[in-house]
Simulated assay, not measured.
Amino acid sequence: MNIPVPVMTVGLLLLSNVFMTFAWYGHLRYKSLALPIVILSSWGIALFEYMLQVPANRIGHGYFSAAELKTIQELISLTVFSVFSVFYLHESLRWNHLVGFGLIVLACWVIFKEW
């Protein structure tokens, strides 16, 4: 199967960000757990994040510049985190969060625009 580079790159980055978000923020629902357990658990989850993120950047670099790869990763990260915070942490997104995220999307457009 010949998956286009942009699809493979974005797909792997999306999956890696799901793992990253759980590694970094998943423990917030379990504040009674001892910090060393939380740290070791996060490292274990982050291993899977790296196993997806590193190939994504390897595959995508050349088609995308490093700055574009980082921009894609940040946009995906914000999107995944928004969904995670609403559905897993049960926190609401306020209007100022949405405006701020919108400005970041605008920044992404500036980075990808051919000038």
Rank of each mutant, 00 (worst) to 15 (best):
H97W: 07
Q73R: 01
V80C: 06
Q73M: 07
L103Q: 00
R29N: 15
F101L: 03
F101A: 06
I72K: 00
F64N: 07
F101W: 07
W43T: 00
A107R: 04
L35Y: 12
W43K: 04
L103Y: 08
R94G: 10
Q53D: 07
S42L: 10
A34G: 08
V99Q: 05
Y50T: 06
R94H: 15
G62D: 14
W95M: 12
H90P: 02
F101D: 00
W95R: 09
Y50W: 14
S42W: 07
H90S: 13
V86H: 01
S65K: 03
Y63E: 06
S77W: 01
Y50A: 12
H61F: 10
H90T: 11
N57E: 10
A66D: 10
F101S: 03
R94W: 01
G102Q: 04
R58A: 08
V86Y: 04
S32R: 09
V83C: 11
N57I: 01
L35R: 11
G100Y: 05
Q53R: 12
R58P: 01
G60R: 01
K70D: 05
R94I: 06
N96H: 15
S92G: 14
L103E: 04
H61E: 13
S92I: 12
K70R: 02
L69V: 06
W95Q: 10
L93A: 04
A46N: 12
L78K: 02
Q53K: 08
A56L: 03
G62S: 13
V83Y: 08
L35E: 05
I39S: 02
L47Y: 08
L98T: 01
H90L: 09
Y63H: 15
H61Y: 10
A67T: 10
L89C: 08
L52V: 03
S42G: 15
E68V: 01
V83H: 07
A56W: 03
A56Q: 09
L93H: 10
R94M: 05
Q53T: 03
H97A: 00
I76V: 14
F81C: 05
N57R: 08
G62V: 11
A66S: 13
E68C: 04
R94Y: 11
P55N: 07
N57G: 11
L52A: 14
L69W: 08
Y63K: 02
G44V: 04
W43N: 09
K70M: 11
E74D: 11
I39G: 00
T79F: 14
K70A: 13
G100W: 09
A66Q: 09
P36C: 12
F81Y: 14
I45A: 08
I104W: 11
W43Q: 08
L103I: 02
